[in-house]
C-alpha cells in the first residue's frame, strides 16, 4: 500500500471490463480514494501469525453421487439469451 492510496481507474476499469464515462471516472476516483483512506487503518492490525478466513464455517470434501440428472431443457436455457440462432447463443464474431 502506498501512503496516498490511489486507484488507476483506467487500468482497473479495463480489468473489470467496464466502460466508464469521464464523469464516472472522476467521481469513482474521488469516492474510492475516500474509502481507501478509511481502509488504510487495517495496516495497524498485527496479522503476522494469523491465518486468513475465507468462510466462517468451511465445509471440506463435499461430494455428490455421480448420477445423471436432467439439466435445463434447451428452450429454458436459451429463454433469456439476448440473441440466439439454431439452439445456440449468437455472439459477435470473435475470430478473424
Amino acid at each position: 500500500m502506498s501512503s496516498v492510496p490511489h486507484i488507476d481507474i483506467d487500468h482497473v476499469a479495463k480489468l473489470a471490463r467496464l466502460a466508464l464515462t469521464p464523469a464516472e471516472k472522476e467521481d469513482f476516483s474521488r469516492q474510492l480514494g475516500d474509502v481507501l483512506r478509511h481502509i488504510e487503518q487495517l495496516r495497524r492490525v498485527d496479522v503476522g501469525a494469523v491465518e486468513p478466513t475465507a468462510h466462517a464455517f468451511p465445509v471440506h470434501n463435499v461430494w455428490a453421487a455421480d448420477e445423471p440428472q436432467d439439466g435445463l431443457p434447451v428452450a429454458a436455457a436459451l429463454r433469456n439469451a439476448p440473441a440466439q440462432r439454431q439452439n445456440m447463443v449468437a455472439v459477435p464474431k470473435v475470430v478473424e
Binding site: 500500500m1 486507484i7 487500468h11 474509502v35 487495517l42 486468513p52
Partner: peptide, 24 residues
C-alpha cells in the same frame, strides 16, 4: 471497481489477504 482493485496484481496481499486475516 473497488473489488477488482483489491484483487489486482500488486494489491492482493495488501488488501484482500490482509482483510481475510483481520476477518479471523
Amino acid at each position: 471497481i473497488l473489488g477488482t482493485y483489491v484483487l489486482s496484481s500488486g494489491y492482493y496481499d495488501a488488501y484482500y489477504l490482509r482483510a481475510q486475516k483481520v476477518r479471523t
